[in-house]
Each structure stands twice: as C-alpha cells, then as structure tokens.
Design a protein around this nucleic acid. Structure first.
Length: 652
RNA sequence: GCUGCCGUAGCUCAGUGGUAGAGCACCUCCUUGGUAAGGAGGAGGUCAUGGGUUCAAGUCCCAUCGGCAGCUCCA
C-alpha cells in the first residue's frame, strides 16, 4: 500500500500501481478531470502511481487542462488530416501548443486550401464521437522507438529525426487513438470524447525545424477550448484585432499609403503627417527638458565609414548602396556613425558630459519582401534616436533617466502594463569581461533602484553591450517591443572618441544608444491599433467638425465658430455640404473626429454649440468661449480621455 | 526570399470562355434639414503587367510585379 495525499481531501491508502484516476476516485467532480498532477507534474489519468505522492485532479478551467486539451486536439486534427488525405499520403512533423491554440505541420501530396478546412473539422467531430480511448505506449530506447514508428507507417523521416535527437538511454513515449499513433511526451485526455470546442484558423507554409534550407511543410493553425463561450471570445478578439488593423484604418482615415511604386516605403498623407509631427514635437519637449541637443546627419556617406563602424560587416545585407563619381556610398541604416562623427568634432571636455545628441533620423534598411508589414515593418523609417556620451561613472544615472523617460512616455500615451527585459552578454561579443560585468551591474543596479520587475534574457544582448528592452501592452492586450536602451563600449574605440578627463588624461566615453518610440512609423502603427483610430484630441488629425443644421441659415454662426477654433489652433472644419444633419454626423463620426459642434437655430443666436463626442455622447449645449477653453485644456494637457462628459438629461 | 491565396472604378466587392457590374465616394440638379445614410441624374475601366491557348479570355495556362497569411529574417 502507498499513501496518496490529495489536497483539500486528505490522505488515502491505495495499492501501489493504481492509476491516478483510481487514486482520485473519491474526489468530487473527478469525472470531469482531464489529467492528474502527481507531485506537481501533469500526467495522464491512466498513469499508475507507484509510490507515496501528492495527487490532484487537473480540472477544466486551469491553464494546465487547456494545454492538455489543445495538445490532444492537435493529435486529433492530425488524425483527421490523415483520414482526409489517406494515412499513406501524409508525413507528420510536429504539433505543439502555442499561445491561443496550437498547430501541426504536415508534408502533404498537395497544398492545403481553405476548402480542406471544413472537411477536416467534420472528420475531427467524427473522431470525437467515436469516443476513442487515448493510450500511452512506451518504447525502451531510441532504437525501440524507431522500430515502432517504422512499423506504424511507411514514411516517418521527421519523426525518425526527432527520435535521433533524443537523449540516449531514455524511454520514448507514443500515444494512440484508434488507427492513429504519434510520438509524444503527453499527457493527453483519456478519450477523444472529452474534446472541447475547436476551430481551424488558418493554413500557412512553414519550414521543417524553422530552417529555410529544409523542407517546406503545410502548417495548420487551430485552437480549442472546453467552453464554447471561450472559443467565441477568441474569435471575437481576432475580429476586433482585424477591425483595428492599422493598414485598414490608415487607409480609411487617410493617414498613410504604401504604393506599389515604393514597396515598404510609406507615404505619409496629410492626416498621418499631423500625428507624425505631433509625436516628434512631443518627444522634442521631452528631450529638451532633459538637456538633449538635436542634430541632423547625412543620409548618404562613403563606404569607408560603414566599414569602420562595423555596419558593413554586420549589416551589409540590409543596406542600400549607391555610387557617386566612382566612389561607393551607403544609405544610412542607423544613425550611430553620424552621431559619432558629430561627437568627434573638436576635443571634448568631461565638463560637457553626459553629452546627449538626439536625431530624428531617417534610416533605410533593405528588408526582404515577405517581411514587410504595414507601418510596423518598413524599409524606411524615422527613429527618435539619441546617443549619449558619458563617463563610466555617469552610466547608471543615464540609464535611470532613460528608464524613467520611457515609463513616463508610455504612461502618457496610455499603454497598459510595461515589461522590461535585461539582455545580457551573448556568446559572440566584443570587450573585456570586466566591461561586461560593469555594464550589466550598472543596468541591474539601475533596475533595482527603481524597483522594476524585469526578466533576464541571457545572451540576448548586442555584441557590443547589454541592453534593456521594453515591451508595452496595447488596449487589447497585445505586446509590442518599442524602446531599447543599449550600452556600447565598442563604438568609442572604432571612432576613436575621446574626452579630456578632470585629471588631464584622455578617456573613452561610454555610449548609450536609445530610442523611446523606436521608429515613428512603427509607433504610429501600434498607436492606430491601440486607440482603434480614436486618437486623443492632441493627436487627432481633425479635432473638431462644425456642423450647421442648415448650411445657409447657420453659415455665419458656423463660420464664427470655425474662426474662433482656428484662432486657438484647432484643426477644425465646417461641413458645408447640403447633406442633412444625420448624414453630416455620420460622416464626421466615421472619420473619428473627437468633437462635433452642431449649430442650428437654438445655438446660432446664443453663441453656443451643441456638442457631441465621436462615441455618440451628447455633451449638451455649451457657450463657445467656455467650450474652447475646455478643449484647449484637453489638448494642451494631452489628456487621453475626453474632458466633456454627457450632459444631464433635461426633463421637461 | 520560401509556400499558399489574392489582384476588376478612388474605396469595398460581384462577375458561367461570348456586350464591364453593384454599393459607397465624386460631379450636377432638386431638397434647407435637429444628432449615424433625403431624392434624381451624370461621369468614372488597358479587368496589375507581359506572353500563350482559343473563332472568342476579366474568366484557362506561363512569367513578372504588387498585396495578404505564415515561415525565415529583424527587434
């Protein structure tokens, strides 16, 4: 007999070797359990328990249960694909669980099309109804496992390759339901009837083991949940994300365009340029407060410079080159060399440090056509870049200042949670161990000083120094990496940068590269989706629309309102069309203009306007001067939420 | 770059190998109106580009360019 400890229930004595399910037999609701946890490890319910252990049921609703469900659903999807094409025509690769679902990679006689999906889904439902028991089979070692896959099917080179990579001398497990067997660590649901609600999402190509030199496989993405509600919620979330897609909104709101004549090089339309410029202006304020100096450096410089900076060696594939009077030039992919040259004009004194040189620099990088994506992955973009040249003992306070700046900006923009990552020394690196120790310590200490929560990405630093990366969460919970703060010991050497220290010796400055927005292009792309196109007043391309009820009777009042708004610097217009009011409201609302001022008989004589927000809220009738003062406050304080609330309902 | 899908009016999209279509937007006229679409008329096309098959190609085939999803890359 062994002793099983069941949390919240107590200890029970059972014969050694009973299954986890049997051990849990008395637990309330155990019939719904999808797996068991033995001493904290999730296993099949059918797994025997051979010695004293803590055993608990893994119930639907827990993350572990969902993972088991999705993993099993992946197997069932593979089985359905096998039935759809015939087992002998399919070669199976891998089928892991990912965030929000799972996928499975196959080699198939022909590519999957959207028409295959419903057929595969139907087969999955059939397999669920067949209520096939899912059983675990163990191979002694790798040879045994190889024999098992070869006996099971004609083509198994991917599975064989996987097995060959397993550690020697360890067992290998397989799972079988019905005619389908798959190499798998498990655990799985006990039978296919326990499957929840699943949906096939998309088809894509993927390389075997992510290597573009290897076989290209067909990848089928899908998801599964226990509760139909959750599946619907995910589908809704995907639809919501699609509605916010910055490429669609960018087109509809006339913010930017990317045309075939310049693939990957965005055109900023007037509306988008307003946003672009205001973000730059905002960042200028921020860096002026922090005593940065702004510079501008050339877009095209001779090859030798890029060879000296190391870009030619490390970044050549992503650079554009051109020839001028038989000399080879490169278009800048980064701003660092220009800043370094700027720094090196004249001998610097320690009194000038930290010297913070900012540049809203336009960079060009060659990106492969398949990687381009709206504004978030482009071939030309403007970075809100800066290079800080400081003495080693100033490094930490500079880092502190940058982390604070980042947090301040992201908070003012309205992002949710901010995650920080410390990326430490990679295997391939420059500089001495002391330098790395020092730099990493400085970063760690800075993060500790502000009490920041952060994760460490070991070995993820740049070859010249460690960095802090920021990830922000947008309004619908997606994460974007924007800001990066990088410490660089190599650049000062490469460009022979020096300053005169207080003891009269020449010293190398430490260089910090950083961008807060990252690139303005990507930042605007993220912002469009974050705000769903509803930009806060200070950024909105059009801030106020004046809508006369009758375009001739109320023309004077509308014109006056417009003039006053424009005098106070608002981007405003009057809808002079002869449409009815309802239509004018619809059009202005679709343009996501924050405030609509309706002016009719009731307002014209009193110098007021009936104010409506783009979300449909009626803010009531306000005197024009008072209204404009409030709007100024909303704009000038860069409020994220409207300053005007719903007017109280008037009862007559 | 790779695999698959796609490319028709400014936008969103229909279109059976046999005369090029709709809605919105645009222009003109009527309508002067009260919180998300008033009415009528008009204009707008090298069906991405180049080849091929066919009596006949928007439609079938090939190539190129561009877009989308994913992979890879980047961060």
């Amino acid at each position: 007999m062994i002793t099983i400890t069941i949390p919240d229930v107590g200890d029970v004595q059972v014969p050694a070797g009973v299954t986890a399910a049997e051990a849990l037999a008395d637990v309330k609701g155990v019939r719904k359990a999808v797996a068991a946890k033995v001493d904290g490890v999730v296993v099949d319910l059918s797994r025997p328990v051979t010695s004293d252990a803590t055993v608990e049921a893994v119930m639907p609703g827990t993350p572990e249960a969902l993972e088991v469900l999705r993993h099993t659903t992946a197997h069932v999807m593979a089985q359905a694909v096998a039935r759809h094409f015939g087992m002998e025509n399919v070669e199976f690769a891998i089928g892991p669980v990912i965030e929000d679902g799972f996928y499975y990679d196959f080699e198939l006689p022909r590519p999957l099309t959207d028409e295959d999906l419903p057929a595969i889904e139907t087969l999955m439902t059939t397999i669920k109804r067949e209520n096939l028991p899912i059983t675990r089979h163990e191979a002694e070692d790798r040879d045994d496992a190889l024999a098992m896959v070869r006996a099971d099917r004609a083509k198994s080179r991917f599975k064989e390759e996987l097995i060959a990579g397993f550690p020697e001398g360890e067992g290998v497990s397989f799972y079988r339901q019905g005619e389908f067997m798959d190499l798998c660590r498990g655990p799985h649901l006990p039978t296919t009837s326990k499957l929840g609600f699943s949906k096939l999402l998309s088809v894509a190509g993927a390389y075997w083991r992510g290597d573009e030199k290897r076989e290209q496989l067909q990848r089928l993405y899908a998801t599964a949940f226990f509760d139909k509600k959750d599946l619907k919620a995910l589908i809704h979330r995907r639809a919501e994300a699609e509605k916010r897609d910055h490429r669609k909104l960018g087109q509809r709101l006339e913010l930017f365009r990317i045309v075939p004549e310049a693939p990957g090089f965005p055109f900023w339309l007037p509306n988008g340029t307003v946003i672009f410029n205001h973000l730059v202006e905002y960042m200028r304020e921020k860096i002026q407060e922090r005593h940065y100096q702004e510079i501008r450096t050339p877009h095209i410089m001779i090859d030798d410079l890029w060879k000296r900076s190391g870009h030619f060696d490390h970044f050549h594939e992503n650079m554009y080159f051109t020839e001028i009077e038989d000399r080879s030039f490169a278009v800048k992919p980064m701003n660092c060399p220009g800043a370094a040259i700027t720094f090196s004009q004249g001998l610097r004194s320690y009194r000038e440090l930290p010297l913070r040189l900012a540049e809203f620099g336009l960079c060009h990088r060659f990106e492969r056509s398949g990687t381009l994506h709206g504004l978030t992955r482009v071939r030309s973009f403007v970075q809100d870049d800066a290079h800080i040249y400081c003495a080693p003992d100033q490094l930490q306070s500079e880092i502190l200042g940058l982390v604070a700046l980042c947090r301040e900006v992201y908070e003012e923009i309205g992002f949710g949670e901010i995650e920080m990552f410390l990326a430490t020394r990679p295997d391939d690196r420059a500089g001495t161990e002391e330098m790395w120790d020092h730099a990493e310590d400085e970063l760690r200490e800075a993060l500790a000083k502000i009490g920041a929560d952060y994760s460490v990405n070991e070995g993820d630093g740049a070859f010249y120094g460690p960095k802090i990366d920021f990830k922000v969460q947008d309004a619908i919970g997606r994460k974007h990496q924007l800001c990066t703060i990088q410490v660089d010991f190599a650049m000062a050497e490469k460009f022979d940068l020096e300053y005169m220290a207080d003891d009269g010796t020449r010293q190398r400055p430490v260089v910090v590269h950083r961008a807060i927005f990252g690139s303005i292009e990507r930042f605007v792309g993220v912002l469009i989706e974050h705000y769903a196109g509803n930009f806060p007043l200070w950024l909105a391309p059009e801030q106020v629309a004046v809508l006369p009820v009758s375009e001739d009777r109320h023309a004077d009042a509308a014109g006056n309102a417009l003039q006053e708004l424009r005098q106070r610097g608002f981007r405003a217009h009057v809808d002079w069309s002869n449409n009815k009011l309802g239509k004018k409201i619809r059009e202005a609302t679709l343009k996501k203009i924050p405030y609509l001022l309706v002016i009719g008989d009731r307002e014209a004589g009193h110098g007021t306007a009936a104010v409506r927000r783009r979300d449909g809220t009626d803010c009531g009738n306000l005197e024009l001067g008072e209204l404009i003062a409030l709007l100024c406050e909303e704009r000038d304080t860069r409020r994220l939420t409207p300053i005007l609330d719903a007017a109280p309902k008037e009862t007559e």
